[in-house]
């Protein structure tokens, strides 16, 4: 349980961080998206506009414990997509930047390390989805509250 909490906060912070960096440099991120050569030209800018904010929203929810099933599911989905993109770029022998935590084209070139890191994060996200209790606790708490109110109203009758 404590592990799920740690993973959730870690992933949340990481997603907010990764999204913020991309928001700061939309043009650079669009270039990074384009470099993967996976999307048709018309889809590059919409993805560059929306994806960073989806990351920030997802990360914020994970950090604050809001909608954890949805946020962890979405994080898993995104990390799975990133896995496919990274793997295919490696398989095609592209010499491109990851565009994961930076939008500039430094010396960082996608290699097996990026894929392993992505898988590790994916494992964490799935773990949070399966084992994070905050949501269940919240829900059962609400149910208990409802029981109390309903029994209270019964008592009045």
């Amino acid at each position: 349980m404590i592990l799920a909490l740690i993973f959730r906060l870690f992933l949340g912070g990481l997603f907010v961080y990764a999204g913020s960096i991309k928001v700061l440099d939309p043009g650079g991120f669009a270039q990074a998206v384009y470099n993967y050569r996976l999307l048709p030209g018309w889809a590059v800018n919409p993805v560059a506009i929306i994806l960073p904010w989806v990351e920030i929203v997802t990360g914020t929810c994970l950090l604050l414990g809001i909608w954890i099933p949805g946020a962890s599911l979405l994080a898993s989905g995104l990390l799975s997509l990133f896995f496919l993109a990274l793997t295919s770029s490696l398989a095609r022998g592209l010499d491109i930047a990851c565009g994961c935590f930076s939008t500039s084209r430094g010396s960082e070139t996608v290699d097996i390390f990026y894929i392993l890191r992505d898988l590790l994060l994916l494992g964490m996200a799935v773990w949070v989805f399966l084992f994070d209790r905050a949501w269940t606790v919240l829900r059962s708490g609400r149910m208990r509250a409802r029981e109390i109110t309903s029994s209270g109203s019964l008592g009045e009758k």
Partner: peptide, 22 residues
Amino acid sequence: RRLRSGLLQAAGLLLVGSLLGG
């Protein structure tokens, strides 16, 4: 149960992210 509400929530988060981004 988590999957069911998770999928709905994920769709909601995608929408929120898209609106914010746009």
